[in-house]
Design a protein around this nucleic acid. Sequence first.
DNA 1: TTATTAAGTATTGTTTCTGTACTTAAGTCA
DNA 2: TGACTTAAGTACAGAAACAATACTTAATAA
Lengths: 185, 185
Amino acid sequence: MTVIRLGIVYLTDRLLFNAEPIRTDEFNMNWQDLPNEACSVARTLAVLGDRWTLLIIRDCFNGTRKFDEFQRSLGISRTIVTNRLTLLTKEGVLTKQAYQTKPDRYEYRLTEKGLDIYPILMGIFRWGDKYYAEKEGSPALFKHKNCKRDFHACLVCSECGEPLHPRDVNARHGPGYKTKPRKKK
Amino acid sequence: MTVIRLGIVYLTDRLLFNAEPIRTDEFNMNWQDLPNEACSVARTLAVLGDRWTLLIIRDCFNGTRKFDEFQRSLGISRTIVTNRLTLLTKEGVLTKQAYQTKPDRYEYRLTEKGLDIYPILMGIFRWGDKYYAEKEGSPALFKHKNCKRDFHACLVCSECGEPLHPRDVNARHGPGYKTKPRKKK
DNA sequence: TTATTAAGTATTGTTTCTGTACTTAAGTCA
DNA sequence: TGACTTAAGTACAGAAACAATACTTAATAA
């Protein structure tokens, strides 16, 4: 059974704390191989695509910074909070900074890379709002400081500014495209 | 130990096939309580927020329709493919339609609700592209049929059309806001 | 002296995910 | 006729991740 160490990233739990080579000699894939996929969606989901990470990031945008605040806000296991904050820090989405000493206490803040997750989060909010809101209406409203109006997120073409519909888009391979490093049986 | 049946949804694996009341008498939360959160992000992630669902939906946008195509494309366990397709069909994101009989064969297609996931997916693609692309460039390029140019996804204010930055947004509770149904210890 | 706060670590049990094999029903090849 | 292939799953054992609870450490407050 050959064992090959793949590309870049060791991501969470098992791999986060005990980085081991990934076996590549079987056909099936598990999600820890995702960063090796030649797809930006797959690579992003390798970092953000679990049940809690995006909720932690949502809390960050709401001003949450401390370990216990995250744990209380989400009500999840402290182990998961530790793992996710560690991973997001490693990935450069959050920074961990001491805000006091004796005893040392740390806070977690979004980096620029973290702030760039905003469109994803607003897209998720918009979809949930449209399909899962209470009949009373949205649980949250957003006002744009610039135009002083309530808005919702809107996806447009960066070139012509028109709203984007999936039917109006042609996708093709780009320069970074590689055929999938598919494992042989 | 009191047991209370909560709100709406039974989502995956255990709850998908064997819907049981959710215990609400403990402090900690697990992700199956997410649909009861008064947050559109949490509710969306209860459906889409696992390691594989958004990749299945990505494949749908690429034209994948059949069970075996999903399984081969992602290289994941057939069990997961079954569970995710079943869940997405239940949630109205996909439809399951027979494309032949004797023997019966089905295909899965995006509904309108499914097509509305496009902004989320493009947001995810954009972020991965910015931070995890090969040095050669993006693995995929998108052309807007309307303006005939390569573009990337851009998030703007629905009211004034300006690009949105997190610092320019004020959030507040909306009419559907409820205090969290926090469990008591 | 005891309790509290913050930021974790440790441990155990439950749930989910992974890998492999099997099933069913029809069509195709030799 | 029998073996092989395709499509769409199901079954089940073992591995990984998650959940619940308790514990640790260092300082302050009552």
